[in-house]
């Protein structure tokens, strides 16, 4: 009993720690003047999200988040910023006048209200049908077969095979598009 209490306390502490790091980094990201500093804060957000994925029992997604998002996508962002020499702090103020601030404030308040409505626990409990809750408890208790990749790979190649194949076509289109768009136009004369 002692161990379980310590375990859940430790888990909650780590969860809140990474959550607060994510929120603080996101706010820092949105308010930086220099795009390079903003990119580094976004990397920190994604890294803490990867930690949260691991805590939510999605270790493969956590590894993929670090590999794809922080290791590839953000590197491409940094490359573009550095190659176009946009890394210096932007000399222009960023908000589009006081109406922009007001709109952002209103949207923030609306979303905060939504979050507060969500976190009232009886709301969540009423949204989950009891048979689903029982199935979730059973799934949490059963060990994963085939390591961490099996439960994701099986639906990917069985039920969602068409979506998987279409995604590969999408990636091909994106690669070709990116190469064509960023080629220098040499005027053939």
């Amino acid at each position: 009993m002692q161990v379980n209490q310590f375990h859940s306390l430790f888990y909650a502490f780590t969860f809140y720690f990474f959550g607060l790091v994510a929120i603080a980094s996101a706010i820092a990201f949105v308010t930086r003047k220099s795009p390079v500093a903003a990119a580094v804060w976004l990397v920190l957000v994604m890294f803490s999200l990867a930690a949260l994925y691991v805590m939510l029992d999605a270790q493969f997604i956590g590894a993929i988040q670090v590999l794809v998002y922080t290791g590839a996508i953000m590197v491409v962002f940094l490359f573009v910023i550095m190659l176009l020499n946009l890394g210096n702090p932007s000399e222009l103020a960023d908000a589009r006048g006081k109406w922009g601030y007001l709109a952002a404030l209103l949207i923030g308040l609306v979303m905060l209200a939504e979050v507060m409505a969500l976190t009232r626990s009886n709301t969540i409990d009423r949204m989950i049908p009891p048979d689903l809750a029982a199935k979730a408890a059973a799934a949490a208790a059963a060990p994963l077969a085939g390591g961490v990749i099996g439960p994701i790979a099986a639906p990917l190649f069985n039920e969602y095979l068409l979506a998987f194949e279409l995604t590969s076509v999408l990636l091909l289109a994106a690669i070709v598009g990116a190469v064509v768009l960023s080629k220098r136009r040499t005027n053939a004369r």
């Binding site: 994510a22 929120i23 957000v45 589009r96 949207i107 979303m111």
Partner: peptide, 15 residues
Amino acid sequence: AVLFTIGVIGVLTRR
């Protein structure tokens, strides 16, 4: 939800 809100605010206020 909080992160999504911060993203929306960023899109609306940055140039």
